[in-house]
Write a protein that binds this DNA or RNA. Sequence first.
RNA 1: GCCCGAGUGGCGGAACGGUAGACGCAGGGGAUUCAAAAUCCUCCGCCCUAACGGGUGUGCGAGUUCGAAUCUCGCCUCGGGCACCA
Length: 854
Amino acid sequence: MSAQSDARYLPQEFETRWQTAWETAGCFTAKSDPARPKYYVLEMFPYPSGRIHIGHVRNYTMGDVVARYKKAQGFSVLHPMGWDAFGMPAENAAMQEGGHPGTWTYNNIKVMKGQMKPLGLSIDWSREFATCDPEYYGQQQAMFIDMLNAGLVYRKNAVVNWDPVDMTVLANEQVIDGKGWRSGAEVERRELTQWFFKISDYSGELLDAIDGLKDWPEKVRLMQANWIGKSRGLQFAFERADGQGQIEVYTTRPDTLMGASFVGISADHPLAKELAATNPALQAFREDCAKGGTTAEALETAEKKGFDTGLTVKHPFDPTWELPIWVANFILMDYGTGAIFGCPAHDQRDHDFARKYGLPIVDTFLPVGQEWDIQAEPFVPLKSESVRWTRAFGWAEDATSDAAIDAAIAHCESQGIGTGVTKFRLRDWGLSRQRYWGCPIPVVHCQSCGVVPEKKENLPVRLPEDVTFDTPGNPLDRHPTWRQCTCPTCGGPALRETDTMDTFVDSSWYYARFTAPHASTPTDLAEADYWMNVDQYIGGIEHAILHLLYSRFFARAMHKTGHLPAKSIEPFNALFTQGMVTHAIFQTRDDKGRAVYHFPEDVDLRDGRGFLADGTEVEIIPSAKMSKSKKNVVDPVAIIEKFGADTARWFVMSDSPPERDVEWTASGAEATFKHLGRVWALGARIAALPADQVGEGDDDLAKALHRAIADVTATIEGFAFNKAIAKLYELTNTLSRTKASAAAQKQAARVLAQLMAPMTPHLAEELWHMLGGDGLVTEAPWPKADPALLVDDTVTLPVQFNGKKKAEITVPADASKEEVEKRALADEAVQRVLAGAMPKKVIVVPGRIVNVVL
RNA sequence: GCCCGAGUGGCGGAACGGUAGACGCAGGGGAUUCAAAAUCCUCCGCCCUAACGGGUGUGCGAGUUCGAAUCUCGCCUCGGGCACCA
């Protein structure tokens, strides 16, 4: 047995060594270099939940592949990392385990950074920060004050989930089946005065600018456009029949006005409140409506309920036609005017409501040439579909609703009934949180001056350290001294605001802070000007709407307040949304029937059923987003320890297309490790070849090599990492079988190392080194494919008969259509299928296919 | 309920409207070995066939096309988001 075959692939022996080499050489320190093009690649930063999970590895490896590839392409690369460190889990941990949320958070950061470091990511760690660092949130407070002064922030009332037992505000996540997660009490909707960003000022702009986001996924652009929800409609007033006033309504379907059957108002509508004052039954109904959580899902899936006020309004076209006013639980006060008219014939929800309460159902249009029982089922066609109008006012009998809506608005305006208006569904961004572990809102409540911003020199407004979490509610509220302060305007005694900011604020500008993470102002404009925008942003599809929309707004607000250049109002040039790594959730129930979750490693799977160590069977909920609270997380640390970082990196990048969700399975890492071992052994074997050894097939190897360079380059550019890896398998297979000369093999093996370097950088360095590569492969320029080696002289074309493949012919690549047809028909197999028959037609697509039509 | 996606062998997946199943995993057979591991060779959608070959096949049902996994319409199932999870 030779010494050679004793050598094995031992990544643990060299991975750390190469990481040290990169660090010593300062490979990943981002430097502003006006002489070079810059490239800013950013992965959505993690919440420090405690341990990294496999989804993190997938996310950061993708970013790392891009960063290393762009570096090899000659770019000056910025690839930073930080921590989205404020948020509820830290407070929950403090409640459950004692201690301080900050201690818990910084411990988690330490642990997670320690788990990430061995992955060998090309991150510039000198720019690291956590959003809970006072240095960071102090700058956020400074910007908040600027935005407040610029009119981008205001206060108004808004509803929250209120737990009447714990006397505290609950997050939507903490409301389970309409009940508080801890107390089990029925949750109520309650109004509080809250802080808001005026994102609605930018509705139109945020919508229009979506067109410019060329390198964003179409689905994200569509989701954002729908979320902003531009609509054209008619706003008008119904006169009350008793002459006691009007009810202002907004409708996107003025074309159905002749099918109006009732007027519905929100339970929070001023009229509902007014009537309830003297009507206990209505008040009881309103209180019933206030039960349950605040989510749209809860509101829209709740049973539709109404209360007849006994009042009526006059139809605007006919004063003798009266419509009843109902209070309904499905009408939102904060969209439109909080009042609608119901047209049961053309809306499922109104139809259900009308059937339930015996209200009339009157059609305004019916299908063309088809019977329809409007009492049984509403007729709700696409607005672009032509229908037969039974109650039109000012348009043809056959028209689309799109056309009819325009005509209806024009008609109403000419009659002095309301005006056509454009509205947006997008609501202002409520940023107040009644919680401790967030950025304090830097304002002061003064008896004489009102609500005033803190002085900038007093920033950061720091969170107090001496807080307890043994009782529910906001510790800032009950802190003995923290609230007391001096009014920045009059110098008199005043009280601090105790609301903290939504953590979405923190994550709405961290990308800008990374360009100058230690600046004494929120941003350094020179640095921002060099590094912005983010050239490639990478993160989960679950952030498609909120985080990305808030960031787009915040960049605009930062520009308005002088913290970002004009070019950065769309901060992310290109977006890639990776799919999620999903895993089954294992749960049992406690004695109150509430879910108790279990980690995968605690569950023994047998024949599709799962059991705990004590034999209890668990309920298996398939494929759900990995979430620490559900405990369906997979820890990659064991894989890294056993097989090394390159195996983990290659494994998460191979097979599944990055945009698709993947169900995690533990098998397969072993196979990846074996493959990398084969590559290592191949490199060692080629390195040991005598330099002057001759061989045959150098040209074929060169062709395969340049084909691989072209394919790997194109697939990395296109974010198809799984395909890049497939191409690397092919090249490895070719190289392991070639009989080419030692020089050609060594050259090919060095290029293989370069092409693998973005995915498996440590192995690539090792190969590069043993094959006599110059310096670090990390610093080597990306190989270029020679176009002359990418063309083939002949092509093999399939021959189909009526679309089914029956034969194959090989023709010169530049053969004419006629030549291809002639050769195809002359082919033996084709002749056999034809059996003397004459083809009706022969379709030749050069370089693609021949189809014979019989 | 509303908005947005996804669905292809035993598994992960590949396929400018043009050879369905690249590449990998798992599995079968063989070589090597005292034996095993490792390694190498080979087969591998399903059905019929000894084989040659034929049929069938991309969640379901229609349609457009010389030709559909791909485009259109209608469903089904799963996933994400729904404004206080991050």
